[in-house]
Computed example of a mutant assay.
Amino acid sequence: MILISEVGPRDGLQSIDRVMPTEAKKRWIAAEAAAGVREIEVGSFVPPSLLPQMADTAEIVAFAKTLPGLNVVALVPNAKGAARAVAAGVHGMSIPFSMSETHSLNNVRKSHTEMLAEIAKVAAMAHDAGVHFAVGLSTAFGCTLEGAIPEEQVVRLAAAAYEAGVREFSLSDTTGYADPAQVRRLVRKVRDAVGDALTTLHLHNTRGLGLANALAGLDEGITTLDASLGGLGGCPFAPGASGNIVTEDLAFMLHAMGYDTGIELDALMKVREIVAEALPGEPLYGFTPDAGLPLGLADRVG
Rank of each mutant, 00 (worst) to 15 (best):
M1R: 10
I2G: 07
I4A: 02
G8H: 04
R10P: 05
D11F: 06
T22S: 14
T22D: 09
E23F: 12
W28E: 04
A31E: 14
A33F: 11
E39R: 15
E39Y: 08
I40D: 10
V42S: 09
S44L: 05
P48M: 04
Q53S: 05
A58I: 07
E59A: 15
A64E: 07
T66K: 11
L67P: 09
P68K: 03
V72H: 07
V73F: 12
A74R: 10
G81Y: 06
F97Q: 05
F97V: 13
S104E: 06
V108W: 08
R109M: 12
K110I: 09
E118F: 02
E118Q: 07
I119E: 04
A120N: 01
A120D: 07
K121I: 03
V122C: 01
A124L: 09
A126M: 04
A126Q: 03
A134C: 04
T139C: 05
F141P: 01
A148G: 02
E151Y: 08
E152Q: 08
Q153N: 13
V154Y: 00
V154F: 01
V155I: 06
A158T: 03
E163C: 07
A164I: 05
A164H: 01
V166C: 02
E168G: 04
F169E: 02
A181I: 08
A181H: 10
R188C: 10
D192M: 06
A193R: 11
A197W: 04
L201M: 02
T206W: 00
N213A: 00
T224E: 06
T224S: 05
L229I: 05
G230W: 02
L232W: 01
G243H: 04
N244P: 02
N244E: 04
E248P: 03
D249M: 06
L250M: 05
L250C: 05
F252A: 12
L254R: 09
H255W: 14
Y259T: 08
G262C: 14
A267R: 15
A276L: 15
P280E: 10
E282D: 11
L284K: 13
G286D: 12
T288Y: 10
D290M: 15
